[in-house]
Design a protein around this nucleic acid. Structure first.
Lengths: 336, 336
DNA sequence: TTGTAGGCGTTATCAG
DNA sequence: CTGATAACGCCTACAA
């Protein structure tokens, strides 16, 4: 049998109102009474029932987090940014994964409705704004890495374009004239932006570009491996390979090694994300650094703010900057 | 203004009871009435309020997941096993992270109380059974990778001992006589078991063992790097290094490369976990494979079962087997 | 400083 | 097949 506020009240010889006041600091209570109630409550192991409380409070103290079926470091780092931030403000997080399927995501959002005070939605493939339209107006939402037009929603994106642009510019500066690119799915927003950055940098520098230098992978090591194998067989062979994420870059390193090509002497390699493992690759991997944890943290802060303001605030679209991390896989510090 | 079951009932000209029956299949409703209610509900975008529902149902349809501050693939893979399994049975997951600090974990568990129908607790450092004692008896719990004695709780562990034992035996079989080990924190249960497996295999084979061959890391690449650097400087130098997880093994590969030692000719390297990236290392990393996703999935199944049975079932302690994956970092298939 | 009582949105138990 | 109505556990005016 679950013990309720009434049990505590009876035991303490007071009314439920007084016990409630103690647990919410919501009114004056005699110091002696408060202590008695508190000690009885812990003895009875009483904890207010969340459901009952939020029924009347209209607050669940829970943040919904909707993530795509991503794998690897990205997932854990985002959560690592979100959870502590939420906890500090007294919120729990309800996590849900959904494949990038419109129906599935809508189902997930519907299921969250009424169970959360706000939502962080990460859906790099689908037009998230359309999905979010299913939510009640009073449920604050922050869009993470989403395709979003207009200023109706708070949103946070990575500077994918800028990061890719900078990396290609760097490679050009090192004298590379044939730079290949391993892209992600074109439906994926991050992937598309990185590809756009690659193309723009080549175009602006009036550098050569060829269709066959662009290969498409799916962010996994194996797809990077395959793409790099194909690139290595081209002639003339590109002198640099830029992969749209580190996992694919690592797959590429593996493929080049098997093709008996030296990195960076024969082919330079660069990745995107700068996962912790990047620096331990052989050779250490040059990459575009993304502060994934900070992404989660900032999204959470924005969401908490929206909740405070009852969603009546000016929405803000923000972009998280990226930085180049130059290591030996593209020649490193000691120019070679 | 939030729309409730009453709004739907009024609009449809029926009582709330009927609407409720439609949404729960909990009684006979005229087909025509049902359709009318359904269409009105979707038009009004009505969704039952979770709080109110679970107040009377005594079910939250939510599973709590308490994880330590782990990072990398492990985290995402566990969730990847848990979430779909939970979703299929109509459950959400409430995720909480806690450092391996007794107070913090207790706080997290207290906060979950009343908000979840069951709990998956992963706490490899602390005696979880003691912590769980704080929960009400009627809240089913599954312990993941926990130090647990007795049979009072459902629990699931990785065969850390067996995996380490098998790997060391394999290395001995390849002729290695000086095998070093990079351990994890000794407080960590998984780490401790892997160390125990290493020692037992050496002892049972009457192979030499030295205190200086055992180094302690913390499961990060950098700690593996440091430990391997030290090991490389020993003389006589060990001919094999077995790291308690892949991240440390990868750090070790990096250190050996910088010390101009060839892998596997000068020093063989093996890891534990077999993360996806392992096969793309240079050289491809030999490892002990752990089906992390399956770990999450099985834990969830067990928990769902416990919830069905109202926790009145016979508790089961289970162990997930591991398998050796031999790649080139320890000589590979082509014996060398 | 404390108690009383109404209601939050649902489901469940009865009658009809 | 359908409709009242009493819970569920808690918060919060309002009254004392």
């Amino acid at each position: 049998m679950r013990i309720t506020i009434r049990d505590v009240a009876r035991e303490a010889g007071v009314s439920v109102a007084t016990v409630s006041r103690v647990f919410n600091d919501s009114g004056p209570v005699g110091e002696e009474t408060r202590q008695r109630i508190l000690s009885i409550a812990t003895r009875l192991r009483y904890t207010p029932d969340g459901a009952a409380r939020s029924l009347i409070t209209r607050r669940t103290n829970t943040l919904g987090v909707l993530l795509p079926d991503l794998y690897g470091e990205f997932f854990s780092e985002v959560i690592r940014g979100i959870d502590p931030t939420a906890q500090r403000s007294g919120y729990h997080i309800l996590v849900s994964r959904a494949h990038n399927d419109k129906r599935e995501i809508e189902a997930a959002m519907r299921a969250m409705r009424g169970r959360v005070d706000g939502l962080v939605v990460m859906s790099p493939d689908i037009d998230a704004a359309a999905l979010v339209a299913n939510l009640p107006d009073d449920c604050p939402v922050v869009l993470l890495n989403c395709v979003v037009e207009g200023t109706d929603y708070d949103s946070l994106n990575i500077d994918n374009f800028g990061g890719a642009y900078a990396m290609v510019t760097h490679l050009l500066g090192r004298g590379h004239e044939r730079i290949a690119f391993i892209a992600g799915h074109e439906r994926n927003h991050d992937a598309a932006e990185r590809l756009r950055g690659y193309r723009a940098a080549l175009r602006n520098a009036r550098a050569e570009s060829k269709k066959e230098w662009e290969r498409t992978g799916d962010f996994t090591e194996s797809s990077g491996y395959r793409a790099a194998s194909e690139i290595a067989a081209l002639s003339p062979r590109p002198t640099a390979i830029f992969a749209a994420n580190d996992s694919m870059a690592i797959g590429a390193l593996s493929a080049l090694r098997e093709a008996d090509l030296r990195v960076p002497q024969d082919v330079a390699v660069a990745g995107f994300d700068d996962i912790p493992m990047a620096r331990y690759m052989s050779p250490p991997l040059t990459s575009v650094h993304v502060a994934i944890g900070e992404l989660g943290e900032r999204a959470t802060r924005t969401l908490l703010h929206a909740i405070e303001e009852k969603n009546q605030h000016a929405k803000v679209q923000d972009t998280l900057p990226t930085t180049l991390v130059i290591r030996q896989s593209c020649g490193g510090d000691h120019r070679g």
